[in-house]
Simulated scan of single mutants.
Amino acid sequence: MATIDLVDIKKDYGNGLAVKGIDLNVADGEFIVLVGPSGCGKSTLLRMVAGLETVSGGTVSIGGKNVNKAEPAERDIAMVFQNYALYPHMTVRQNLEYGLKNRGVPRPEIDKRVKEAADILEIGQFLDRKPRQLSGGQRQRVAMGRAIVREPAAFLFDEPLSNLDAKLRVQMRVEIRRLQRRLKTTSLYVTHDQLEALTLADRLVVMNNGLVEQVGTPVEVYERPASLFVASFIGSPPMNLVPVAHFKGATGSLPAGTDIVGIRPEHLLLAAPAEEHAKLEATVELVEPAGGESHIHARLAGSDQVIVVLVQGRPQIAEGSTLMLHARHADFHPFNQESGKRTD
C-alpha cells in the first residue's frame, strides 16, 4: 500500500511556523496537487515528505510506516524537480541507470527498466545524448524517466513544469497525467499555477500561509470555494468578491453573516436572465480580447473596486460606457469578510 499520511505536520525555522499543523491522507494511486502562492509552505511540506527537510512536529508515514527519521533513500520515493537535476557529464542512458546501479540492481533488470521508461516517454532516440543536447521538454522527460525506473512507492513533483514555455507546459501536463494514470503510482505534486492544479489533480490541497484552506476535487473547489482566499485564488480570471451593499434589487435569502458575495466572471451577464437575479452598475475601463473570449474590466458605481466580466466573442462595448450587469442568485457564493469563510 503506497499511501502517504501526514498527521499534524509542522515546520519551524526559528522565526515562526512555516507549516502550521497539516493533516492529509493520500490514497494508494491517488494524484494530489498542493497549490498556493509562493511562500505558503507547499514545497516545504513536500520536502518533509521526501526527507529533504526535518519535521518539527507531527508524523509522516509512507505505506503505513513512520518515516520521520528515515533518510530520503530509505523512503521508497522518487522526486522530480523543476531544474531537472540531471548529471550533465552523463548520457541520458547513464542518467537513467545511475540510481539503479547504486542500488545493485542486476544489469538485465536495469536494461529492461530503462527500455520501458524510454518507450513510455518516447526518449529512446536520445539515450546516447548528453542533457545539453536536449530541449527543456526532453530534459524533463528524462527526469521523469529517472523517477519511473526506480519503480517507487510514490512520485513527488516540485513545480516540474515551471522552467518550460507555455506550449511545452501544456504538453508536459498532459503527459504527466497520462503517465500517472498508466502507472497508478501515488503522486504528490506542488505548483503555484492553479490551471495546472485544476487539470492534473484527483484532489486539490489549497494552501495559504502554512495552513490548508480547502481539500477537494477540482470541481468541488472551483464550484464551492470554502474561503475568500480560495475564491480569489482558484479560477482565471479569479472570482469577483463584491460587498452586498453594491447590489441593486433583491439579493435573495443570503445566509446570516454574509457581507461579501462572490460571482465568477463568467456568471456576470450583460442581459437580464429569466431567473431571479440582482444587478450591479459599473463603468467599463478596459475590454481585453483573450482569443475566443473577452474580459471586460469595469469599476463598480460609487467604488474603487474593479470587477471582471467574461463574455464569449468580441462585444461592441466602448470603454467609459456604463453597464448594468446581472447576477443570478443561484450563482452567488456567500462569505463573511471578518472570518473569511463561506456562510452557507
Rank of each mutant, 00 (worst) to 15 (best):
R314Y: 06
P160G: 08
V205K: 12
L168C: 14
A147H: 09
R314V: 01
R342V: 00
I77C: 12
K115D: 12
Q133K: 10
F155N: 09
Y222R: 13
I317M: 05
G216Y: 09
K11C: 03
Q214R: 12
E220P: 10
K65R: 14
F31Q: 13
A231Y: 01
R93D: 03
S135T: 11
H267V: 01
R169I: 12
R314E: 02
R182G: 01
L168H: 08
S56C: 09
V311I: 12
Y222L: 12
G340L: 05
I32S: 11
V284S: 03
A250D: 15
D119W: 06
A197C: 11
P225V: 08
R224T: 07
P218Y: 01
E223V: 01
H326I: 03
P237V: 11
F332I: 04
D5N: 13
I234W: 10
M90H: 02
A318Y: 00
Y98N: 04
S236V: 07
G63F: 03
A250S: 15
E74L: 08
I260E: 02
L269M: 15
P160Y: 08
V221T: 09
G320F: 07
Q133R: 10
E266Q: 14
G41F: 05
G99E: 07
A250N: 14
S253Q: 12
P255T: 09
L100P: 06
K167D: 00
T322L: 12
V149G: 13
H326K: 06
Y87S: 14
L254H: 07
A201F: 07
P265R: 11
D8I: 04
G262R: 15
E220F: 08
L6P: 04
A85Y: 05
V149A: 09
A70D: 10
S253C: 01
R314P: 00
L204H: 09
H295Y: 15
E266K: 14
H267F: 08
N102M: 15
N15A: 11
E319F: 00
Q140D: 01
V284W: 08
I148C: 04
S253P: 01
I148F: 07
L198D: 00
F81K: 11
S38A: 14
